[in-house]
Design a binder for these strands. Sequence first.
RNA 1: GCUCACGUAGCUCAGGAGGUUAGAGCGUAUCCUUGGUAAGGAUAAGGUCACCGGUUCGAGUCCGGUCGUGAGCUCCA
Length: 576
Amino acid sequence: MITFDDSEGPDVYRHTASHVMAQAVKRLYDARLGIGPSIKDGFYYDFQFEQPLTLEELEKIEKQMKEIVEENLPIQRIEMTRDEALEYCRQHNEDFKYELISELDENEQISFYRQGEFMDLCTGPHLASTGQLKAFKLLSLAGAYWRGDENKPMLQRIYGTAFPKKKMLEEYLQRMEEARKRDHRKIGRELDLFSFHDEGPGFPFYHPKGMVIRRELENFWRDEHRKAGYHEVETPIVLNRSLWEQSGHWDHYQENMYFTRIDEQDFAIKPMNCPGSMLVYKMGMHSYRDFPLRVAEMGLVHRHEKSGTLHGLMRVRSFTQDDAHIFMLPEQIEDEVEKVIDLVDHFYQVFGFKYHVELSTRPEKSMGSEAMWEKATRALETVLIKKEITFTVNEGDGAFYGPKIDFHLEDCLGRTWQCGTIQLDFQMPEKFDLTYIGPDGQKHRPAMIHRVVYGAMERFFALLIEHYAGAFPIWLAPVQVVIVPITERHQEYARAVFQRLWEEGIRVELDDRNEKVGFKIREAQVKKVPYMLVTGDKEEETNTVAVRHRQEGDLGLSALESFLHDLKEKIQVKAN
RNA sequence: GCUCACGUAGCUCAGGAGGUUAGAGCGUAUCCUUGGUAAGGAUAAGGUCACCGGUUCGAGUCCGGUCGUGAGCUCCA
């Protein structure tokens, strides 16, 4: 007997919920079944309807589901031969199920699950009866290609979730509601960090406060990369077609690129930084003694992503990659990959991000020999295993020029986004005929990796906003301190305090509006400013400030200089 | 790009199944208030109802298209 608390409990429970939903749908509409698995936090089922389903109809389906639960239909497992199963699907016009079964082995025993008049192909297991289903809710309606293939028909997918107790369902919905409040698009507007406009879909505009955060992230990045032995370059955004033909982007990436004509010649706006960096490398001779040569670039790239894939700052059409290309001896690869992994880990630790790692292998559209891919993939895998990093393999998801290790972070709703990536590349050095002079005085081909740590500044920024729910640690906060004079009479002293902080490089604002203290405090709290300094008679007489922290509240009086000293210390160590 | 939704003041949202000058709260401006830790009061300004076309005596409301946004699919940092 499986309960909801067992590891497979929620899966079984929600899988049964998806069957009950499918049964309800079949009772109400003319629909063919796709697939209906349980997923993290819920379930879905794909259907092909004669008439497209609209959102309002989810309520009707839910009501019908409740009736099926009322009926408390026993759920039985039924086994058939492949031929019997095919015949059943043919009779019931279940074309999609037919397709699935026809791909199974001829001698396979095929299991169905029956509840009342409804029967569905399924390996199970399931709850014993529909009456065991307690709290459930249908959440959304979306399109989904049959078998995830955009060339196959698009079905309609209904998402839902189910729990054994009403209270658990309510808590879940409440949690989702709370999570939505952290959405970077919402906070970005509320805190005036960035915007999007119809004039440039997918092209972000940074506002002054968003720009402060971005620059701090870049400063941190520069410091750490200098320490890690990187140099920095910048290459042009617009480059001649010939370069993209040479790099392979013209053949392999064209559909994502923007083009322009200059003096009757084709140019492309760079979708990646590597070709530009190749040209820089080729400007001189390189010795093996200079390896590994780590060349970083905060490169602004443009990619024509499909309109439906855009998502706030997470998925945009122009973004800055904190890129670097590392040129090295083949025997330095594993060492260098390890160093990059450590660098990525260090960065994510500073922000307190949890992440997971994937190894992406050769895609269908790719360059290079099987042997090269094999060797490159093995090298990445070796390092991951050596470092005892748990990872999943993402088959066929590599770049067209090489396999990669990807680092994924979660957004407020638990969706994961690829940020850091380490890509091994034996192609670009070939294409651009890169060489170095070895100990033997001869020219040799260097190995190369592309890597990013943040990934894209935009995406990382978005994840940071959601991670902190807008309450950035003090080193990142666009406004670090707000000074709140109590009345007009205290403005002169407030200005002096402001001046003192300002000259020390603190991002400070003076709220000298004709409002009450409570109002100004509230506003600063809403804007998530870390420190509020109230200045009145007491403070003016003693050259102090009344310190309030956004989380800790009123901290009492502090000498201005000692507050300033502590503040600078906190900024310095990147305290929260 | 595809499926289903959505698009009303800077923001959040009202506008019963088409009918005179499109509403509210927050925010903004001005004035009053000089108030010690999360919203003091008054007054005022702000809207081509995303855009284009159609139906109608009459469209924010109905229909079609375009653009944008959201959830998801495909794709990806």
